[in-house]
C-alpha cells in the first residue's frame, strides 16, 4: 500500500517558483506605488519620502477630469450592464422561444472578438451616422462589452436554481412581483454582484475600446497616461494611480465579502 498523504504542504521549489511569478506580476505595481512617494520629479531613483504628490494632483485639472471621467463611465456602464444583463439572463432562463440559441451564442461575440475590432467597428458606425465621440459613446461601448459577462454570470447562478421554491411561494399566495423580490432576486444576487464587479473591473481596465470611442472631452485616466508616457509621466499620476489601485481593491474585496455573506444565508 502506498502511504496516505497527510496534509498537503508546499514543496520548497514550488513555493520558490510561485513567489517568482507573483513577483513578476507585482513588480510594476510596486514601482508605481513606490514612486508616488518620491520627492524627485523623475521616476529614476528614490530620493526621499513625501506625500506632496497626493495633494499636488488635485491642482492638475486635466488629470482630475480624466479620473472623474473614468469613475463616471465605470459607474454608469456597470449599472446599465447589470440591469439589462440580469433581465436578459432571467428571460433566457424562464422562457423557451425561437432564436434563443442564436441569442445565447451571439452573447459570446463581444467576448471572443479582439477588442480592437469591436472598437473600430463602433468608431466607423458612430462616425457614419454623424455622432461625435463623447461620454455617451464611451458609455455605450463599455456597456456593450461588459453586459454579456453579466448575462453569463447570472445565468450560471440561475442554472443551479430550484424552480420549486418559486412555485412554493406562488402556492403560498405571493404574487409574481413579490415572488421575484423575495425569492428570485435574493437567490441570484451573488451572481448579480459578481457580474457587476466583472463589468466594473472591465470598464476600469479598458484601454483599447476607450481609445477609439472617447471624445476629446471624455479622456479616461488610462488614455491620459498613454498620451504622457513617451515624454515621461509626472509623479502625481503615480499618486492617482496608487489611489485607483487601492480603491478598486477595497471595492472588490468588500463585494467579495458581501457575496460570501449572501451565499451563506442561502
Amino acid at each position: 500500500m502506498k502511504k496516505r498523504r497527510k496534509v498537503r504542504e508546499f514543496k520548497p521549489y514550488s513555493m520558490f517558483y510561485a513567489c517568482l511569478v507573483y513577483l513578476f506580476l507585482y513588480l510594476p505595481i510596486f514601482v508605481v506605488i513606490a514612486f508616488s512617494f518620491n520627492t524627485s520629479k523623475i521616476n529614476i531613483t528614490f530620493e526621499g519620502f513625501t506625500f506632496e504628490w497626493y495633494w499636488k494632483m488635485f491642482e492638475n485639472r486635466q488629470l482630475m477630469q480624466s479620473f472623474g471621467n473614468t469613475v463616471i463611465v465605470a459607474a454608469v456602464s456597470t449599472v446599465f450592464s447589470v440591469i439589462i444583463g440580469t433581465l436578459c439572463a432571467l428571460g433566457l432562463y424562464k422562457f423557451e422561444f425561437k432564436l434563443k440559441n442564436l441569442i445565447s451564442s451571439s452573447l459570446y461575440i463581444p467576448i471572443v472578438i479582439p477588442e480592437l475590432v469591436f472598437a473600430i467597428a463602433l468608431l466607423i458606425f458612430f462616425t457614419s451616422i454623424h455622432v461625435s465621440m463623447s461620454m455617451v459613446t464611451l458609455i455605450i461601448a463599455h456597456v456593450t462589452f461588459s453586459m454579456p459577462f453579466v448575462v453569463i454570470t447570472v445565468r450560471a447562478r440561475l442554472a443551479g436554481f430550484d424552480k420549486s421554491i418559486e412555485e412554493a411561494a406562488r402556492d403560498l399566495g405571493a404574487n409574481e412581483f413579490r415572488t421575484f423580490m423575495r425569492v428570485t432576486l435574493p437567490m441570484i444576487s451573488p451572481g448579480v454582484i459578481s457580474g457587476g464587479m466583472l463589468a466594473l473591473t472591465m470598464s476600469l481596465d479598458d484601454v483599447v475600446v476607450s481609445f477609439f470611442t472617447a471624445g476629446p472631452e471624455s479622456t479616461t485616466l488610462p488614455l491620459k497616461i498613454l498620451g504622457m508616457v513617451r515624454k515621461g509621466v509626472s509623479p502625481d499620476v503615480n499618486a492617482l494611480s496608487t489611489l485607483m489601485i487601492f480603491g478598486t481593491i477595497v471595492i472588490l474585496l468588500t463585494s467579495t465579502l458581501i457575496q460570501g455573506r449572501l451565499e451563506k444565508r442561502m
Binding site: 505595481i29 514601482v31 473591473t201 476600469l204 485616466l221 497616461i225 509621466v233 494611480s241 478598486t248 481593491i249
Partner: peptide
C-alpha cells in the same frame, strides 16, 4: 483588477 495600462507603465 488594476488597470493594465498603469501596470505596463510600471
Amino acid at each position: 483588477w488594476t488597470n493594465s495600462l498603469i501596470r505596463t507603465y510600471g
